[in-house]
């Protein structure tokens, strides 16, 4: 029991640090309204696709986002930029845009988006449940 408590406390501290980082990220999201989010895709420009021919995760966002594709320096491939046309104050659209950019890059480079293993833990415990919630959001946050 003591071990479980320590585990929960440690996980709590870890998630606390993460939560602070998440809060900073949200502030950043609010300040970032209007700024381009970008990924560099390791493929030539013609394989990344001009506007209108972007892979499904980005195409799905349709007119809500503006995109820009340019060649990256040296052997780095192609720069793929996107930003919401009318940024929402909550920053939610930035989170779905990050997911879309990450998935689009993976599809263009590898043909797929790798999934986490199915069947998560059957008894994650309270700390594990918190973590699972954070995991569900993890593709929509970050420095991207």
């Amino acid at each position: 029991m003591r071990v479980m408590m320590t585990a929960a406390v440690l996980a709590g501290v870890g998630l606390g640090i993460k939560a602070a980082a998440d809060r900073r990220a949200k502030q950043r999201d609010r300040r970032a309204n209007g700024r381009w989010l970008a990924v560099t895709v390791c493929k030539p420009v013609d394989e990344v696709g001009a506007e209108g021919r972007l892979p499904e995760p980005l195409a799905r966002l349709g007119d809500h986002v503006e995109t820009r594709v340019t060649s990256a320096p040296a052997d780095r491939g192609t720069e793929l930029y996107a930003r919401p046309r009318a940024p929402s104050p909550s920053g939610e659209d930035l989170r779905s845009l990050r997911v879309a950019l990450r998935e689009a890059k993976s599809i263009i480079e590898t043909g797929e988006v790798v999934q986490a293993d199915a069947h998560p833990s059957a008894h994650p415990g309270p700390a594990g449940k918190l973590l699972a919630m954070a995991n569900r959001k993890a593709k929509g946050v970050g420095r991207l």
Partner: peptide, 10 residues
């Protein structure tokens, strides 16, 4: 990495 946001932020 299926959860890039965690380490991205850290």
């Amino acid at each position: 990495n299926t959860n890039p946001g965690h380490t991205d932020l850290l």
